[in-house]
Simulated scan of single mutants.
Amino acid sequence: MIPRVTATVDLSALTHNLGIVRKLAPRSRVMAAVKADAYGHGAVPVSRALEQAGVDALAVACLEEAMSLRQARIQAPIALLEGVISGEEAAQAVYEQLQIVVHDHWQIELLERLPDSARLTLWFKLDSGMHRLGFPLADVPRLREVLARHPLWRFAGWITHLACADEPDNPFTREQISRFEAALEGVPGPRSIANSAGLIAWPQTRVDWVRPGLMLYGCSPLPQVSAAALGLRPAMRLESRIIAVREYAAGEGIGYGLSFRCPERMRIGVVAIGYADGMHRAFGNGTPVMVRGRRAYLAGRVSMDMITVDLREVPDAAVGDPVLLWGEGLPAEEIAGWAGTLSYELFCGLTQRVRFRYR
């Protein structure tokens, strides 16, 4: 059976990109973000590849994501970025030797209900200005008292998250760094600040731990800097194929709403991918794809199972030809801009109809 849509994930690209992280932050330990099914790339194969490459830890959002990795025999340290939400989760996290990122006092209360012998590992997340999760910076002395009360708890460190790191000219990142450093002046414990954008654009965030996500998958988190310029390799290649080619006269409309009108007599290719596969309906006329190594362009609306493309730039295109939606030669971050979104959402939006392959 020939798959309609294939996502090919190059695991060697992941390890290459991890190498770029290590070059940028040679003195930092690396916690790789594999939450959201490794940004849609497949958490188990991606985590296994990163573990074999010597990554220091993995980061997921929640216990369910961590359990899928443990069940696949991933042994690397795993941090729960949203922490735990019940006593049962806390006990399971300790049993599975997971690192718990604690961001509120009610979570501390959950952990304090565990047996005194529980050998748990935790981070404290501080809110340095993003105002999503994290303790107020003024709570640092109180949090130190918590640690003093529980000498068997293993403290992994202090963590914060940047709100505007992808904007190198935005002074708020510098303000966040200053707040975080001031709150922890003279306080022991490892620090972690940098996400991918911080790691690239803000060298002062390359502290004890860095937490790359998007850059591991070969995309630039900075709108003005390409992945290629950073030396990153795209890990995913999303492809479909042409299932029909038709020729239409000037003035004929294409697809739902006839939103594209043929400016001249021209060939239109029908490609077997649609929004049910994760091809956003927001992609409009002119969005590029690649056919036979050349760019063709969407002509008409994305429908549930198909797109239609203008083949004037590829006159030799034929039924059965592969069509690249994003990947090497057609960066996902460029394509995402045509839908007014980010490459994160493209990757995470792929559905179960897409056949994944790993090499």
Rank of each mutant, 00 (worst) to 15 (best):
R295P: 15
L69V: 07
L184D: 00
P322Y: 01
C262Q: 05
G87C: 12
V319C: 07
M215L: 15
Y297W: 05
G157M: 11
Y256W: 10
L147S: 02
M67S: 07
L143W: 11
T341M: 03
Q99P: 00
G186C: 10
V140R: 04
M304A: 13
P45N: 15
G293E: 06
Q71P: 00
I20A: 09
R174P: 06
A72W: 03
V210P: 02
P221G: 15
G213N: 12
A33L: 14
V314M: 00
V21R: 14
V309M: 04
R211Y: 06
F283Q: 04
L311A: 04
T8P: 01
A235L: 06
D127T: 02
L147G: 02
D127G: 01
A36E: 15
N285W: 01
A79V: 13
E181Y: 06
A93Y: 02
I335V: 15
R246L: 00
G134S: 08
A336E: 13
A66P: 12
G255W: 02
A138D: 15
L232Y: 05
L199W: 08
V101A: 11
A32I: 02
E82L: 12
L133A: 03
T160P: 09
L133P: 01
I242Y: 03
A244E: 11
E247M: 00
I85Q: 11
G253I: 02
Y95K: 15
D37G: 10
I2V: 05
Q224S: 12
L214D: 10
A228R: 00
A194G: 07
A201V: 01
A118P: 05
S196E: 11
I2T: 12
A57H: 00
I243F: 08
Q107S: 14
G157N: 11
T205H: 09
R149L: 10
A163Q: 03
V84H: 05
D316H: 14
G189H: 02
P223K: 14
A7Y: 09
H16Q: 06
G42I: 04
A182P: 14
G255L: 05
L152A: 13
R357G: 06
E345L: 07
A244T: 03
R241L: 04
S196N: 09
L114K: 07
V187S: 04
Y275F: 08
